[in-house]
Computed example of a mutant assay.
Amino acid sequence: MKKYYPIDKPESEWRAKLDEQSYKVLREKGTERPNTGQYYLNKETGIYECKGCGNDIFHSSAKYDSGCGWPAFTEPISPKAIDVQMDYSHMMIREEILCAKCGGHLGHRFPDGPKDRGGIRYCINSVSMDFKKEDQ
Rank of each mutant, 00 (worst) to 15 (best):
N55C: 04
M129Q: 11
D135R: 12
K63N: 10
G30V: 06
P6I: 11
Y48G: 03
A100N: 15
K43E: 06
M91Y: 10
F110E: 04
C68E: 01
S22R: 12
S12Y: 08
Y5W: 03
K9Q: 14
I97T: 11
P111C: 09
V25P: 03
F58I: 11
S126A: 07
E13K: 10
R121G: 14
N42D: 14
D83A: 13
K63M: 05
T74N: 11
S89H: 01
A16S: 10
H90K: 06
G30F: 12
R94H: 10
M91N: 09
R27N: 05
Q38M: 12
G30W: 14
I124P: 00
I57Y: 03
S126E: 09
K51I: 09
V84E: 15
C68V: 06
I57S: 02
D83Y: 01
F58G: 06
D87W: 12
F131Q: 06
Y88M: 12
E44F: 04
K51R: 14
R121A: 13
P6Y: 05
G37M: 07
E20V: 14
E96M: 09
V84N: 01
Y48K: 03
T45M: 06
G104M: 07
G54C: 00
S60F: 08
G107E: 12
P71K: 06
G119L: 15
E95I: 05
K133A: 04
K17E: 02
Y64T: 01
G30Q: 10
T31P: 05
I120L: 15
K115Y: 00
V84P: 00
D130H: 13
D87T: 09
R117I: 04
G118T: 11
K132N: 10
A81D: 06
R109H: 00
I93W: 00
Y39E: 02
G107W: 07
T74G: 08
I93Y: 01
M92K: 05
M86I: 15
Y5Q: 09
L98K: 12
D135K: 13
D8H: 12
P111M: 06
D135Q: 14
R121C: 13
